[in-house]
């Protein structure tokens, strides 16, 4: 897994609540047997007009937000299907962090397993970020995982919570599998006793 230590990047405001994983990547893009190529399907229904050309109305297609690596969205982001493809689509497109007031559980877990940092900030902070980034799309935001802070250019700083174990895994780029495999003897003992 790609480690996540800190990120200095611009952000794109997605003013919507309950953005579900069918929105992040529609089912018709899930037909691959590899992880690659999911970026094309990201927000497909919003991103492309009916003729397949980019829809200029959609915020991701607007030139002033090109290259943004932080997505700022409304509450209950990533609800619905367990498809990890949603996270792969976001990372392949170039996002490294998502800021929202709250995330759906499975999406949150899937993000952590792919080095995509989900940052839960209070509703007012998210609304403030939306306005700020709308007015000044080149606003550079710094997310420091070790310090668990989000810092704005004027020095304003907000903290965020993250499970300490997950934090260590992200900082060091470790996935769960190595840890689980190291528990082999305990797993075998459990299996023996449980029959």
């Amino acid at each position: 897994m790609q480690p996540f230590t800190s990120l200095t990047a611009t952000a794109v405001p997605l003013r919507a609540e309950n953005v579900d994983t069918d929105q992040i990547i529609p089912a018709r893009y899930l037909t691959a047997v590899t992880r690659a190529g999911m970026g094309d399907g990201l927000f497909a229904a919003w991103r492309y007009a009916s003729d397949g050309a980019p829809d200029p109305e959609f915020v991701l297609n607007q030139a002033q937000h090109a290259g943004a690596e932080i997505l700022v969205a409304g509450r209950n982001f990533g609800s619905g299907s367990s498809r990890e493809h949603a996270v792969w689509a976001l990372t392949e497109y170039g996002f490294r962090a998502v800021i929202a007031p709250a995330f759906a559980d499975i999406f949150y877990n899937n993000s952590l397993k792919n080095g995509l940092l989900p940052v839960a900030l209070p509703e007012e902070q998210v609304a403030m970020l939306w306005d700020l980034v709308d007015e000044q799309p080149d606003t550079v935001i710094v997310i420091d995982l070790a310090a668990q802070t989000v810092t704005l250019p004027d020095g304003q700083q907000v903290g965020f919570a993250i499970d300490p174990y997950r934090k260590t895994c992200l900082l060091d780029g470790l996935d769960d599998l190595g840890y689980l495999l190291s528990k082999g003897p305990q797993i075998a003992a459990y299996e023996q006793q449980a029959g």
């Binding site: 367990s82 990890e84 877990n109 899937n110 397993k113």
Partner: peptide
């Protein structure tokens, strides 16, 4: 409960 593909692998 539902899990992502990384967890399917685990």
């Amino acid at each position: 409960f539902g899990i992502g593909t990384s967890e399917v692998g685990h």
